[in-house]
Structures are given as structure tokens and as C-alpha cells.
Design a binder for these strands. Structure first.
Length: 824
RNA sequence: GCCUGGGUGGCGGAAUGGUAUACGCGCGAGUCUCAAAAACUCGUGACCUUUAAAGUCUUGAGAGUUCGAGUCUCUCCCCAGGCACCA
């Protein structure tokens, strides 16, 4: 995942992610060939943090942002991160965002972007509307931590809900279909992913996406309202309790809708609804648990038994869950129980439980209970099992009778896409009174892209929800692309997710030196420059490289970037712009690097570790090694400034050992031949499973063995070791390589284990157990170690073991070359 | 409440059902030095024991499967992250 280049520079957390990327890239280049690897880097540079920092510094982001990413790049290079810099770009480059705008227009033309005046999440500090995904569960804005509110504003919204089902179902995409598609497929290593169903992503992130999409299958049951022309359609997964409905609750939003459709509600209902709708997200969250509501005076008829029950309005019913109307079944739902108890509404038990105590308390109206039991008070269904036959038969019957129908609901809401801020891609739409659509909108044509962001001296956001761009008359006033008359530009900008929704599609064909020029030539010769460019240049490169085999980054994007990018890719697939439905086949999420005190690193706590200082003090190799060694890569871990000295010592020891008399020679000692073979596999295994700490431990063990008295390494094998080391410590490895060989170690092929020649150690240690307990170790020749009778003979002759073998050996278990277990 | 990870020495952690505590940090002793640092060597889970040998115990708790369990099964406890008035 490309970083957001803040003014503070690289964080040690970035170093952890990008070193891992680098280690893997270096490994694959050696293993499968330089031309099989694309390991690019770019800058996600639009958006709030950069803009806020620029405002604070009284500068313009256009000059500040390039300065920031130049610094990031310098830091990355000082860490020997071997990205393919020829493909570098920033999302803020006009040539880049011409494509972002073009892709936006593609979505627009497909009818997936609509304008609506809706109450949206509003951050009062950043003074902009934000998406649902950007509001944390405590109601604060994920960027700045400010409590958000609601604001009614006309917004551009993306219909991500149209793709809800595919976003959910494709999590189970068989990714093996993608291995084997590209030209480089023969070389792609899919170890660890074979036979896997679904995206090879961390379980937790898959689960978070499933929860966020929140598919629910249930019944919509229609309760006709007696007093006015409305139907209360309640959605439920627990329709088997429908005979227990003693009231209906509607959300304030639903009440408002009914009022707008002609219901003249009582004064207290109107004020309750007004009041609730004004509550901020924060307030509503604080009030969870204390339920309030008002009797509307309306009643509905329960279709299943003709019972008339009252309709209440209460804000514990959420408008965006199901239909915004729920059945009140206080005997079998905790929330309904609380509400009914508070307002003295009746309770009817419709499920009887096995546990007498629970059953009695439900019958007495003392508690609610949800669980499997037998239906009672449920007409012809009484006596059937509540979650089995009863549930099934009741559904069939209600549908047959026309009381209910199946309905699948999703938690996912459409994506609010406009931002009332300056530092984002301008939305390429204009308003023309003459030829606009129902909203007055005309899209720009692609030869007019990029629509560049004007440079402004003052671009502070406003409290009114007006974009800063709206203050720039000269920019806002334009001509209509259709009729040529006077038109006004859209002044909202895109969220910073826009650029990151497709950047991975740009890497394969982007050239930091050539793309701008090529686009110019396309513009000169074609009315559809971007479309033609995509077809002729971008698409073939995308076909060759994507989807991405490995995607490494932080878990904080689980339902933000990772959801949005999947959505766009699916749309692009439908538009024929790409040929795949999932952008990232294998995702790995890095653990956080915490400060030494175990807290999050932050300027205000003064506990930040700066990678530049580490490089200066210990060197880039030791810094990289330490970050890869400090713990399992996917796990959060606190920085330990003492422990990095271990890496410095290790790198130093390699050099001093090499200089010692007799350590490098013509032949490798038998012990080291065997160890080198396992080391190659161990390093490889650690890299492919992101267990870099074990790879490094292996390298250390090998050096420890080499340092033992009498152990010699042949020049050839020392070179092999240098190759392994080069993944983690490229500079030290190159020094080592250069002592005996020409060229650059990173250009070499990965060692082939089967070609490691030399005599291996002859003696093998076999563990001996008696009745399952370890009782000794015997050394036998490697040939004999594979033969049970030979090992048993030696073991039983061993004094230490013999004394535990009292009586007859009833059974032996033998693992060739490893273990002998005797059962007495 | 639900979901997903975890729980192993003083610390970070390692271990296809087969020698638990690899590797590193720290700590202790020693070598070198006038001295210190660095470097190097040795030691370092607990108990018993003057020491050693030998032994016993030990991977959150308890049970089970197995010749053999950190690893598999069940019950429970705790920690971290995510979701949640989701009907």
C-alpha cells in the first residue's frame, strides 16, 4: 500500500511494511527473475492531512506535498528499499488525476454516481462531509478524532450498494484462476495459497468486510395501518415470533416520511421526531440503552391473527437497518422487552422453553429470552419447534397468504463521495441551465481532462458546507461542453480514496518520465485520448501484471480503501477496462510498531522513534534487520532500543569471522554443508510466510555454527550465504559478495539447494523415548539412522537408556532419522 | 453480546503430533585493560542439591485422544483488535 507522505517523514511503521515488501521483492527477483517482479511505489498525496498541514504552515499544498514525498523517497532510498522508481507517481500529478477524473466519469456514465440531498456525516473540525466508513464506531472522524454530526447537504453519492452482493460473494473467489494467466505465471510462486478457497487475506479483514456489507436474509411482514393510508412493513429474521407482536415501532425517519406523505401526527409525536432527528451521532450513541418513544395513536392489524396493536415511534429503531420498522415482541427480544417494560406495554410468550425456570420467568413477564423451544399461542403452528419446522412452515404460510415476502437487506450504505475541501481532485462536472440533466449536470469530455485544481492563496474550508473552490469565480464560471453556453463548475472535490481506488492499475504502465508526453501525443491526435491510451497502452500492461499477487499494508483500511478499491475494480471489469474482479489476491497486514512504553507513538507523548536516527546510529542494514527480527511481522510490537544492538553485533561478527584464519577455504565442513541446505529453505519459508524473524534467526544460527572451532566455508558457499543475507542486509551482503565474486549480489540467482555440493556430516542424532518420555539421544551413522533394527540395537546398548527399559518392549515406534519410541 | 487473533523463561519470541524454551535482548562470571567501554569465552526455565551427576516439574486452568500434546478435541479463564440498540 502506497503511503500518505506527511511532513513528518517516514515512520518506523512504514519501515516495517516497506522492508517486508523489499525483502519479498528481492527474493522473487533472485528466485524467478528480475523481469517477473514489479515492486512499485507512489504517493497518496491528496486529502485532509496535507491540506491541514499546509494551512497551518501558511503554504500551498502544491509546493508542500512534493517536498514531503521527495523526503519520503530519500528516506526509503537510504534504507536500500529497491522499489522500481521508474513507475513512481503522486495522485496529485495532473496527468495522474486526469485518469482519476476519467474513471469517475465512467462511473458517472454507468449511472453509479447520483446527486442527493441527504443528511450526511459532517466533521466540524475538517469542515467537510465524510463517508460512513470514515466515521469510527465511537462516532468520531477517523482522520482527526473529532465527534461528527449530521448535516443536510446535496452530495455526490456512489452506488456501492449495487455491488453489495458481489463484494460479499467475491471474497470467496477462487484465486487460483489468476495464477497462470499472465506471461509471468510460470514463475509465480503460489506456495501457501494452493487449494485455498477465496481471497488469501487475513481472516479478520475478510470478516470485517462481511460484517460491514452485513447481508441479512429475512421476511418483510406487512402490517396495514388502520387510521391512515400506510403500511407498516417490518423486516425480521425472527418471524416465528410474529404471534407475540404486541406493538410496532417505527424509526423517527420513517415517521417523518409518513408525515410528509400526509399523516397529521399529534403534537408530541412531531416534537419527538424533530428532536430525535437533530441528535448528533455522538448523542445517539451516548443514549444507547435508555430507550425513549412516543405512542403515535395509530394502530396496525397483525395479519396472522387479526390483533390490533399500537404503533410507537422510538429512536432505538434505526432507519438504515431493514425497513426502519420493527415488530415489538417483548417476550423474546431484549430491546423490545426494555421498551415494553418502560411504557407498560403487554407481553405475550409464544415460545416455550425446556428449562422450567426460564420458561416461568418469561411467562411472568420478568425476562425476555431468545432460544430454541416449542411454539405456543401461535395458532396452528403451536407445538412445532420454533427454529425448525415452525419457522419454516410459518414462512411458507405467510408468503402464501400474501402477508410477507423474502427480503435480503444489507448494512452497506451508498458512498458519499463529495468533499467540501480544496485539496482533492475536482469533480469533472458542470451545471448548465440549458442542456443539463434533471440536476442540471453536464459531464466534461475526456479531452478536457485533467480539470486542474486552480492555485489559490486562500483555500480554508467554510462552516456552511460550501467548497472553497466556489469562491473562485474565474474558475467556477466556464462554458458548457455541450452547448458552449455559460455554465458553472461543480465545486466539491473527491475524497482522497479516489486516487487510491485505482493506483495499482497505473503502476504497470506508468512511466515517471514518459507518460505525460505520451498523453500529450494522444491528445493531439484523438478526441478520446484517454480511452485510446487505455486500450493501446494501459490495458495490455495491466493484463500482464495484475491482479496483484501480494499486497502488504495496515489493517486500518479493512473497510475503507480495501472495500472502495474492490468496488471500482468490479465496475471496471463490467466496463471492460480490466479483465479481473479482484485487485489483491494475497493481502498481509502488518502489526503496529508501538513506542517503547507500549503506547502508540505520537509527537505529543514524545515517544516517537525516527528511522533517520536509527540509520544514522546503527546503519540501514541493522535497522532493517531489527525491524524484521523484532517479532512476527503481522503482530503489534513495542520498540526495544536495546535489542537493535544484536543486529549490529551479528553483522559485525560476519566480517570478523570471515577475516579469521581458516574460516574461508576450499572446502566446506560437512556440518555446514547440511546446515546451508536447511538454511536456504528456512529463509525461503520465512519470506513466503512473512515470518521474517525466523529467516533471520536461521542466518544467525548458521553464522554461530560457522564460528565454531574448525568450521570452514568454501568461497562458493560464502557467496550463497551472501545471497540469503542480501534480502535483509543488502549493503553488508554486497561487501561479503565482493570479497570473492564480481558484480552485484542482488542480480544473482537464488541458490538451488539440490546443487549444494559437499560431504555432509555422517552422524545423525536420534531421540529415544521410553513410554513417551525422553530418555536419551544416540548418535548413529546416517545410513543406519533410517533402519529401525539398527537404531534399536544401539539404543538398547546405551547405559542411560537401558536402565529405563525394565521388562519386555511391547511396541516400538520409529521415525526414520529422527526418533525411536519404546513402549514397555 | 457476537466475530477474529492470542496466552510458552526476566523480556521479544522459536517449534510439519516426535529432543519445548531455537535466535536475539537482558543478566552473571571470566579474558583483555592502570581502569572502563567495546570485543571475546562460558553460564543463564523452576524445584531438589554445597557442587556435579541423576531426577522431578513446566507452554493460562481443567479434562480427553495418543506410545508421545505447546501443537488435536471438549469445558472454562484472561488479554488484544474489530463489530454491535443489526430487529
Amino acid at each position: 500500500m502506497f503511503p500518505y507522505p506527511s511532513g513528518e517523514g517516514l515512520h518506523v511503521g512504514h519501515v516495517r511494511i516497506f522492508t517486508a515488501c523489499d525483502v519479498m521483492a528481492r527474493y522473487f527477483r533472485m528466485k524467478t527473475g528480475r523481469d517477473t517482479v514489479l515492486s512499485p511505489m507512489g504517493w497518496d498525496a491528496f486529502g485532509l492531512p496535507a491540506e491541514n498541514a499546509a494551512i497551518k504552515a501558511k503554504k500551498i499544498p502544491q509546493t508542500m506535498v512534493p517536498h514531503n514525498y521527495a523526503n519520503f523517497k530519500k528516506q526509503m532510498q537510504s534504507l536500500s528499499l529497491s522499489f522500481d522508481w521508474g513507475h513512481e507517481f503522486a495522485t496529485t500529478d495532473p496527468t495522474y488525476y486526469a485518469f482519476t477524473q476519467w474513471l469517475f466519469l465512467k462511473l458517472y456514465e454507468k449511472g453509479l454516481v447520483y446527486r442527493e440531498k441527504v443528511p450526511i456525516n459532517w466533521c466540524p473540525k475538517c469542515k467537510t462531509g465524510i463517508a460512513n466508513e470514515e466515521v469510527l464506531s465511537d462516532g468520531t472522524h477517523e482522520r482527526c478524532g473529532t465527534p461528527t454530526g449530521k448535516k443536510l447537504l446535496p452530495q455526490w453519492v456512489m452506488k456501492i450498494t449495487d455491488y453489495a452482493e458481489r463484494l460479499l460473494a467475491d471474497l470467496d473467489t477462487d484465486i487460483s484462476i489468476y495464477f497462470g494467466q499472465s506471461e509471468n505465471s510460470d514463475n509465480r510462486i503460489i506456495r501457501g495459497s494452493e487449494g485455498r478457497k477465496g481471497l488469501d487475506w487475513p481472516k479478520g479483514i475478510l470478516e470485517m468486510q462481511r460484517n460491514w456489507i452485513g447481508k441479512g436474509r429475512g421476511l418483510s411482514i406487512t402490517f396495514p395501518v388502520n387510521e391512515i393510508e400506510q403500511k407498516a412493513i417490518a423486516w425480521t429474521k425472527f418471524w416465528e415470533t410474529v404471534y407475540g407482536v404486541t406493538f410496532i415501532v417505527i424509526a423517527p425517519e420513517t415517521a417523518q416520511k409518513w408525515m410528509s406523505e400526509g399523516w397529521s401526527a399529534k403534537e408530541d409525536v412531531v416534537s419527538y421526531v424533530d428532536n430525535s432527528l437533530q441528535k448528533s451521532e455522538q448523542q445517539r450513541l451516548e443514549e444507547v440503552g435508555t430507550k425513549t418513544g412516543v405512542d403515535t395513536g395509530l394502530t396496525v392489524t397483525n395479519p396472522v391473527n387479526g390483533a390490533r396493536v399500537p404503533v410507537w415511534v422510538a429512536d432505538y429503531v434505526l432507519a438504515n437497518v431493514g425497513t426502519g420498522i420493527v415488530m415489538g415482541v417483548p417476550a423474546h427480544d431484549e430491546r423490545d422487552f426494555d421498551f415494553a417494560t418502560k411504557y407498560n406495554l403487554s407481553k405475550i410468550q409464544v415460545v416455550e422453553y425446556d428449562k422450567a425456570e426460564i420458561n416461568q420467568r418469561v411467562a411472568n413477564g420478568e425476562i425476555s429470552f431468545e432460544g430454541e423451544g416449542r411454539l405456543i399461542n401461535s395458532g396452528e403452528f403451536s407445538g412445532l419447534s420454533a427454529w425448525g419446522e415452525g419457522k419454516e412452515k410459518m414462512a411458507d404460510w405467510m408468503i402464501e397468504q400474501g402477508y410477507a415476502k423474502w427480503e435480503t437487506t444489507y448494512h452497506l450504505r451508498d458512498w458519499v463521495f463529495s468533499r467540501q475541501r480544496y485539496w482533492g481532485e475536482p469533480i469533472p462536472l458542470v451545471y448548465c441551465e440549458k442542456c443539463g440533466d434533471e440536476n442540471g449536470v453536464v459531464p466534461l469530455t475526456e479531452d478536457q481532462l485533467p480539470l486542474t485544481l486552480p492555485e489559490l492563496e486562500s483555500y480554508e474550508p467554510t462552516d456552511t458546507g460550501e467548497s472553497p473552490l466556489s469562491r473562485v469565480d474565474s474558475w467556477v464560471t466556464t462554458t458548457c461542453p455541450k452547448c458552449g453556453g455559460i455554465a458553472k463548475r461543480e465545486t466539491d472535490t473527491m475524497p482522497n480514496w479516489a486516487g487510491s481506488c485505482w493506483y495499482f492499475l497505473a503502476y504497470p504502465w506508468w512511466s515517471s518520465t514518459e507518460t505525460e508526453g505520451i498523453i500529450k501525443t494522444y491528445k493531439a491526435k484523438s478526441k478520446f485520448p484517454i480511452t485510446d491510451f487505455w486500450k493501446e497502452i494501459a490495458k495490455p500492461a495491466i493484463d500482464e501484471w495484475l491482479p496483484a499477487d501480494w499486497y502488504l499494508g495496515g489493517a486500518e483500511h479493512a473497510v475503507l480503501h480495501l472495500l472502495y478499491a474492490r468496488f471500482w475494480v468490479k465496475v471496471f471489469q463490467d466496463l471492460g477496462l480490466v479483465d479481473f474482479s479482484e485487485p489483491f489476491l494475497r493481502l498481509r497486514s502488518v502489526g503496529m510498531v508501538l513506542a517503547e512504553d507500549g503506547k502508540k507513538m505520537s509527537k505529543s507523548l514524545g515517544n516517537v522513534i525516527n528511522p533517520d536516527d536509527m540509520v544514522k546510529t546503527y546503519g540501514s542494514d541493522a535497522t532493517r534487520m531489527y525491524e524484521m527480527f523484532m517479532g512476527p511481522w503481522e503482530q503489534s510490537i513495542a520498540w526495544d532500543s536495546g535489542a537493535i544492538s544484536g543486529q549490529v553485533r551479528f553483522l559485525e561478527r560476519i566480517k570478523t569471522t570471515m577475516q579469521q584464519e581458516g574460516k574461508v577455504g576450499e572446502k566446506t565442513s560437512p556440518l555446514l554443508v547440511a546446515k546451508l541446505k536447511t538454511l536456504v529453505e528456512r529463509v525461503e519459508d520465512g519470506v513466503l510466510n512473512q515470518k521474517f524473524n525466523t529467516s533471520i534467526a536461521g542466518l544467525m544460527e548458521f553464522v554461530n555454527s560457522w564460528r565454531e572451532e574448525g568450521q570452514t566455508l568454501a568461497k562458493e558457499h560464502l557467496g550463497m550465504f551472501a545471497k540469503l543475507l542480501s534480502l535483509f542486509a543488502p549493503k553488508s551482503a554486497q561487501e561479503l559478495w565482493a570479497t570473492n565474486s564480481e558484480g552485484s549480489v542482488e542480480d544473482q540467482a537464488w541458490p538451488d539447494v539440490s546443487k549444494i555440493e559437499g560431504i555432509e556430516a555422517l552422524m545423525v542424532k536420534i531421540a529415544v523415548q521410553v513410554n513417551g518420555k525422553m530418555r536419551g539421544i544416540v548418535e548413529v551413522g546416517s545410513e543406519k539412522s533410517k533402519i529401525e533394527s539398527e537404531v534399536a540395537l544401539i539404543a538398547l546398548a546405551d547405559e542411560k537408556i537401558k536402565k529405563w527399559v525394565v521388562g519386555e518392549v511391547k511396541k516400538t515406534i520409529f521415525v526414520p532419522g529422527k526418533l525411536l519410541s519404546l513402549v514397555i
